[in-house]
Amino acid sequence: MKTTAKLFSVLFFLMLIFSFTPDDDGDRLVGVWAPSNGKARIKVEKIGNKYYGKIVWLREPIDPVTQIPKVDKNNPDASMQNVPLKGYRLLKDFIYSGKNEWTEGTIYDPENGSTYSCLITMKDNNTLDIRGYIGLKALGRTDVWKRLELKK
């Protein structure tokens, strides 16, 4: 009986520990981030069980040639070339796969209309490595994004 009681006590404490563990570490990605070139700010949000990042601010929102807000003029689908960049979801379909990594998603580069496979790694709570690549992770480039605090 004593042994059984001890066993249940251990089980109880284990359950307490696991129930305090956040059930979705992936939500740490949610927030506003700035790529290293400082030209845009990206807001990451969760829709369903996946993470998406959209442009919420552009340093140069107006196209100097057309003098209207910048649009996705390099999109390979001609019918989508008038979609405005503000609000555009650059990061799509990321799933948290543990170990501070978000995978299975893509990143879109409006500068050339290309979509790349992408791996997001959280280096610390305020720093992301965003690696866009083609095929192999070696054939790509990493950009460092910083979390932004919003002034009220």
Binding site: K46, D124, R147, L150, K152
Partner: peptide
């Protein structure tokens, strides 16, 4: 069950103040 996390999904419908993105600064 009582100690389990509430759903932390940030619903798209929640209020967001988009105008503050103008004055955001790096957290660190």
């Amino acid at each position: 069950a009582l100690f389990a996390q509430t759903d932390s999904t940030k619903k798209v419908e929640e209020e967001e103040d988009y105008s503050v993105y103008e004055n955001a600064t790096s957290s660190d």
